[in-house]
Write a protein that binds this DNA or RNA. Structure first.
Lengths: 356, 356
DNA sequence: ATGAAAGCGCTAACAA
DNA sequence: TTGTTAGCGCTTTCAT
């Protein structure tokens, strides 16, 4: 009942009339201890409910056994899955997770980077807010490896583990073109962040290959609305307005590639209200393969993101950097940091016409 | 470039020919330091890029400035929002978050509880897996307050901050009855977890009041499928099969209350395929108000959960317990732990008939 | 096989 | 105002 003080090595040592040192070694499984002593120590530790103090241990060992995870918004389903994957992989290697949420604010990001330095985490995995690299640079210089997640941060010399969005957009666009689309649109949020920029490239690549190049009015930016903290990452309403405009422009042969499934959903509604048929009048492809995608009417063709693999790979890469500080030097001939982009898969459902 | 050792108080002291202690006080803003010295210390700290070592500080202060957050699955959108809210509120008070994911496994939960003890976190917020209370009891006994999130854990003497699901189910059911429903169904996942049990109670309360009591065949349990880690929490497919069965049983006057919006979505499809009209042939109410809910056809009537408030309240309650270990004693007359259940709001949309 | 001593980086008495 | 000493709980030399 009385929340008494945690038992320490000293308590065990005192009870057994041993030195703290011996107890430490006994519990740590080192050899220089007689089996008999070890047993006694174990039993006493048990009796006292001894739990090792990780902080004390970390202090002397100079390793925190902790990974800092910096996420812009856990309500983004892709990031939620990333969190799970990273936590799981981290734990396998004995690492705990210090989670920081930035809500896409650079100020927050600076604060959390500082906080992670104070904790002396062994490494950092971060979905970076765009703009502002100095805080990550400080971390890197202080010997804490940083691996970027999902988004690249131009100007920062750090590795990246993410999704090959250029390829995913390319494949989605190819699917659309193969299915007969000739008038293609891309609906995205912030054109500045790297995944979006990559998708734009992939989209354009394919159009160019087919001589379908489109004007900038076909690259539609969904206005970023400022939302309360802990809110949903996107809301279909953001793209709904876009969809209403688009509805007047499209017709058979039109297709739109949306940066995420929520956007696609907003388009669905706008198109539906305008009497347009999907995919007859306009084809739609999403991004993310959220659980609802397969259940829309019609079921949404979308891009499935390899969240689990990205998370696991990022942890592995981080552990590599932590183990061999020199590893950062093994960069490509270009001298740029290492980028590991995992392939995404297009899941063909009924919002795109069948490919002849 | 060379990841040199972090600067410490000692480095500053040496450079300035002061004692470590003085430097500490200068930086901590204590009074017993001349303004001039303080300035010099500040400057040198800056020059050296000094960052305080939180672990060392925590070790002597005997507080970790850390809250342990134990979540079953971050991909559950409600939990994702909880994470954001908790992180934000925690940071306001200077606390960092150690995040642990259990994937609803008791084994994992035991491991993470142990891990949190080792870290000596100041308090724990946990969505408990059902069954198994000893690890939480150990934490509590060792002086670390535990506050349960969302789910109650019978048999454990701990506070709970969650949602008043009994009330939300009651209000949703009342809406249905007022709209003319006479044949009501409840579709839920695991009837053992407390939120579900509460919803069952609320559902039954209202039916009883209206003399509409239904048999157990109206309480439908969606089979829990085992899924890979970092997967989605639910999948509409789980309820789709249920929906196909239900489709044969329902007709005008029928209504189903689903434990979450994904279930509702699965029902939508099954009903649609069977030629049933929502809400004409069967009304549907969901739970969670996920971003897609408003965009379904028809837009889904559902229950909006107060995630941000639950998170903030939980942190506040935890801080209270941390500050005054005696606070746990202030329980209701019943002698049971304190339960703070926040009200949820029914968002009426078009999947329920208009109330006359 | 065990113990003594030192130290990780910091703060908190207590002296000077 | 500043310095000295001690100690948080642990691990790691180095003796014994």
């Amino acid at each position: 009942m009385t929340p008494r003080r945690r038992a320490t090595l000293r308590d065990i040592a005192a009870a057994l009339d041993l030195s703290v040192n011996t107890v430490s070694r006994a519990l740590a499984g080192k050899d220089a201890v007689s089996e008999e002593t070890r047993e006694r120590v174990r039993r006493e530790a048990d009796r006292l409910g001894y739990v090792p103090n990780t902080m004390a241990r970390s202090l002397v060992l100079q390793n925190a056994m902790t990974i800092g995870l910096v996420i812009t918004n856990p309500s983004n389903p892709f990031y939620a899955r990333l969190i799970s994957a990273i936590e799981a992989r981290g734990r396998v290697h004995g690492y705990s997770l210090m989670l920081m949420v930035t809500e896409d604010s650079v100020d927050n990001e600076r604060r959390v980077a500082e906080e992670l330095m104070r904790w002396g985490v062994d490494g950092v995995l971060a979905v970076p807010v765009q703009h502002g690299t100095e805080h990550w640079e400080r971390l890197g210089k202080s010997g804490t490896p940083v691996v970027l997640l999902n988004r690249d941060l131009p100007g920062l010399d750090a590795d990246l583990v993410g999704v090959d969005y250029r390829d995913s957009a390319r494949r989605a666009t190819e699917l659309l073109v193969a299915a007969g689309a000739r008038d293609l649109y891309l609906v995205e949020e912030d054109l500045d962040i790297s995944p979006v920029a990559e998708r734009v490239r992939g989209f354009r690549d394919v159009l160019a290959e087919h001589g379908l190049t489109v004007g900038d009015d076909h690259l539609i930016k969904v206005p970023t609305r400022r939302r309360e903290a802990s809110s949903q990452p996107w809301d279909p309403i953001d793209s709904y307005a876009i969809g209403r405009d688009l509805a007047r422009r499209v017709g058979p042969g039109s297709a739109v590639l949306a940066g995420n499934d929520y956007f696609a959903l907003g388009l669905y509604r706008a198109f539906g209200e305008h009497g347009l048929r999907i995919p007859g009048d306009v084809a739609v492809v999403g991004h993310g393969d959220h659980p609802f995608a397969a259940y829309l009417a019609p079921p949404l063709t979308t891009v499935r993101l390899p969240a689990a693999q990205v998370g696991a790979t990022a942890v592995d890469r981080l552990l590599e950097l932590m183990a061999r500080p020199g590893a950062r030097a093994e960069r490509d001939v270009s001298g740029s940091p290492r980028q590991i982009l995992l392939p995404a898969e297009v899941v063909v459902r009924a919002s795109t016409p069948e490919v002849p």
